[in-house]
Computed example of a mutant assay.
Amino acid sequence: MPTRPMRFNVSHWHIANVESYRNVTAQQKLADRILAEADRLIDETEDDTIKRKLEVDHQLDVKIKDVEFRKEQLEWQKKQLDEELDCLITYMMRVEDAEKNLGHNSLDICRKCIVFREGRIGIDLCKDEVDVELEHEEKMIVAIQRMLIRVKEQVKEQMRRLRAMVYTIVKDLDDKSMSLAIDRMNLQLNEKSSGLCTNQGPVSFRTGSCNQEDWEAQTAAAIEHADKELASGRPLRAYIDVVLKQIIDDLWRQYDKVNSAFYRRIEQYKEQKTKLENHHYETVRLINEMTMKMTSLKKAIAEKEEFLALAQTRRGNRSQRTNSELCRDEAETYLEAESDQIQDAIAKLNKSMMEAQASLRYLLRTQVQIEEDINIKTNSIKIDEVDCMPLRAGIDYRAF
């Protein structure tokens, strides 16, 4: 037989009923309180949630407008930077064009003229005004090239800084564009939107590394930095304008000085060549006259020698007289005087002949020297007028 359960008395039964009733009543009251609290919480959280959503929407809208405003400022700054970069690129091309023109045109022509003038010969190979001005022009061009190289480096550095600033602004604009896209999308979402997701358990979202003040300060600093770069770039362009204008003025001034020196020197050469040609003509005339005169002297000497031979023959014949007839009579005196006179005339003629020969030799040497000097002047004129001046016509210091 199974064990019989424990038996309760009637008092236990009444106590158990009372206890059960009390528990039921307490559970019912608790349920009523929970229901009332739930209704209150529903109403309260609904209003609070709607209010908070509206506040978030408002803040998102404010943030969007703030980002749009900052983005417009940055875009305007980027436009200014791009325009400044374009201007600097143009100025860089002007400087490079000036440097290339000076190096491949003007300096080459100047140095060719210096080399050509080394082809002068004789006394004309001297350091004249043209040499001085050409050397000064060469030094000026080289110095200007060095200055243009320094200007190029300044422009490159400014362009590098502007590009770095543009890169920073573009990166900031990209970040702001992404931020605008995200916030605009968030502003369009509501609690009924599809694709909403709720994370279960604790959620960890990425948070920013700076606050609102830091964010505003960062954009303001970028704009301020861009303003400073723009402010430093504009004076550089003005400086380049002044430098290029001054360079062109100085080069044209020196170009005119060199050409004027060439013209004066060519005129001196031509004047000296004309004088030498006149001297050459006169020397040739004197040589011809001297040659003719020497012929006359030779003829005169020959004639005088014939007369001397006649006189001496007569004296020799008369010396054959004998006894008292061999006297010093008047005829003998005249013959002796005639012989002495003829000998003296022949001596004078010979002396004149020697002087004429010496003068002729000197005149011939002078003629050769004059012809050499004329050739030297002709060569110098050819170098300066034919070789250098047409070459210098190729120099063009146009406005860069």
Score class of each variant (00 low, 15 high):
D82P: 06
Q218N: 10
N186M: 10
I374F: 15
A300G: 02
L189H: 06
T366A: 04
R265L: 12
I42W: 08
S324F: 02
E138K: 13
L326P: 02
E267V: 10
H14T: 14
V258A: 08
D66L: 11
D227N: 10
L286R: 12
I374R: 10
H12C: 06
V258G: 15
R52C: 01
Q367D: 12
S324Q: 09
E385A: 15
G195H: 00
K382A: 08
T313Q: 04
R146L: 15
F116I: 04
Q200G: 11
N350Y: 02
I109W: 01
K298I: 10
V130M: 05
T49G: 10
E282Q: 13
E55H: 14
L41W: 03
I144C: 10
L102H: 00
S324V: 03
S11G: 14
S193G: 12
K192W: 01
V142C: 12
K63M: 08
A358P: 04
K299G: 11
V151R: 13
Q77S: 05
D43P: 00
Q158Y: 01
T168Y: 15
F116E: 02
C110L: 05
R40D: 11
S194G: 08
D344W: 09
V151S: 14
I370M: 11
T366E: 11
L148F: 05
W13G: 09
A231N: 07
I42R: 12
Q357T: 05
S11P: 00
S193D: 03
D396A: 09
W76A: 14
F400Q: 13
D86Q: 11
R398Q: 07
Q320F: 06
L162G: 08
A26H: 13
A164R: 07
A98K: 12
R237T: 05
G233N: 15
Y21G: 00
K53Q: 12
D97V: 06
Q27F: 07
L180W: 06
A221K: 11
H279Y: 15
A238C: 11
S194N: 15
A98H: 00
E135H: 14
N17R: 09
A226N: 14
D32N: 05
E355C: 03
R22I: 00
E191K: 08
T322V: 06
A347Q: 09
Q272T: 13
S324K: 09
S352F: 02
L189Y: 00
K299P: 05
E330S: 09
R70Q: 03
D174G: 05
D384E: 07
R318T: 01
I374N: 05
T198Q: 13
R392V: 09
R184Y: 08
T25W: 04
N259K: 07
E289F: 06
K78G: 15
D128Q: 08
L180R: 01
V18F: 12
S194I: 02
D250P: 14
M165T: 10
